[in-house]
Design a protein around this nucleic acid. Structure first.
Lengths: 264, 264
DNA sequence: GAAATTAACACGAACACTGTTATTTGTCAC
DNA sequence: GTGACAAATAACAGTGTTCGTGTTAATTTC
């Protein structure tokens, strides 16, 4: 066989390949190194290097003979993975949500990737006060001239890259904001869910501390329950979803609250 | 004249050159571009590029005809500048201070560059609980397996890259730790000082929340007062300095508390 | 209009990514 | 246990990309 690309790859193609490998392994549950050589067209050595990195980042698990996806619960809560999936949908939702923010408002953001997308749009809105427990959002906003940034401190969680626990809840309870932008891991037409009670406590505190509550959900998260109930849909003031959500689900949700469908 | 290095410089030499430029401009107060070409031996264009970057980072001010150092007060409180000066002294102090930390302890770090050096050493100590309001320290410790990390949230200050204000003070007051490692902008043999009341409030709260208080000061900070008094030396339990501190000053300080002189 | 500054292009070194080959490690059959 | 084979790692070399720099030209500012 001929080698199309004898050597010298770009960082970009490397990332794309690693993403393909990750997706492939997730869809199959596991894969051998030889299988991934076939998939990607690169050498065995490069596949091993990719797998080492993906394993190091906690996205896959390596064993002799190949790699496997991590147990779904652990996997889905992996912060880095969540940040990568459904970027377009999350970005569209965030654009729609950001329209609700006007200069002078105070807003609260939870530790979700969708809220992070909102955060990225806030510097251009105008003078704002933003409170969040999400380290990524803090990094995204710390340079913004017109944003007064408040960190909701607490115990650091490496899986979420955010601060939580009792200290965080008390920090939230000190504040009252105009709007809170929240997301969670799953929902049905009646209720929102999350698998971790710790996180639920923080989100509930945020909802209580805000005049209006905006729920941001991409279509991959519904309809699907999780172990713990977070809050019924009626307790939110607005829901923003992407176009991928089934029409009947949107209709059902509209019995509880206004729903915005964000265009990609 | 011959060109020793016709082209292709390393990132390292670039940083060294920019540091030289910064030091030179600070010592003179101002400098022309041509003067800096003479100093560094690089082309005029490269000097301009360096100055652009240094100005962008807030270390110097550019005007037509050259650059100037910023007004001293603003300048000294510039977070990035403080991080760069006296690195070796701070590192030595941090090594000495880290000897005071034993596995299982809970420690608090303020938003000083010296405390940041301590933070970098903590992951290798063993299981610890670390609380800080300094974003840099959080970034340094978030990957440490054995460290339970607590963020002391509050209003973000871009000059210090830390969280402060009432919210931060209340977060500190919720805790009691075994040791607090603090530094401040200046001190005499009797008292510590800081130019910003906001920061003083946080540091005092930290001192009240700790069983033992360790003051970390490099020799550039003494003996010199500042506008506001922070706390008398006697309220600390230990002082760690570098070798550059005059012997008589150390002797005088020893009348108030034990003093460690860290070897470079 | 002259000096200072910026823009545009080109060169070269350092770095990152990949492949090949050699060595080590682990597993299974006997 | 031991040997043989496959898998994984290590070591080296080649290639592309990025980053820093200099030169020259265009622009701005006083």
């Amino acid at each position: 066989m001929n080698k199309e690309t004898p050597s010298g790859g770009s960082t970009r193609s490397r990332n794309i390949r690693q993403q393909r490998i990750t997706d492939y392994v997730i869809s199959r549950g596991a894969a051998s190194a030889a299988e991934l050589v076939e998939l990607t067209g690169v050498s065995l050595m490069t596949v091993h290097r990719d797998l080492d990195e993906l394993a190091r980042r906690g996205l896959l698990r390596k064993f002799r003979g190949g790699v496997s996806a991590l147990p779904s619960t652990v996997f889905e809560s992996n912060e880095e993975y969540r940040r990568q999936v459904h970027v377009e949908a999350k970005a569209a939702i965030a654009r729609k949500a950001a329209e609700l923010v006007e200069p002078g408002m105070s807003v609260m953001l939870d530790d979700s990737t969708t809220a992070l997308e909102v955060a990225r749009l806030l510097p251009s809105v105008g003078p704002l006060t933003v409170a969040t427990n999400y380290l990524q959002a803090i990094e995204a906003l710390k340079g913004a001239e017109e944003v007064r940034l408040i960190c909701l401190g607490g115990d650091y969680s490496s899986t979420h890259d955010s601060f939580n626990g009792m200290a965080c809840i008390e920090a939230v309870e000190r504040l009252t904001v105009d709007a809170a932008f929240l997301s969670t891991s799953s929902m049905t037409a009646q209720t929102t869910f999350h698998q971790e009670p710790e996180i639920i406590m923080v989100k509930r505190a945020m909802m209580a501390a805000s005049r209006t509550r905006v729920l941001l959900m991409d279509s991959s998260k519904m309809p699907r329950p999780a172990l713990h109930r977070l809050a019924p849909l009626a307790e939110y003031d607005r829901l923003v979803v992407d176009e991928g959500v089934p029409a009947d689900l949107v209709e059902e949700a509209r019995q509880h609250l206004p729903v915005d469908v964000a265009a990609l």
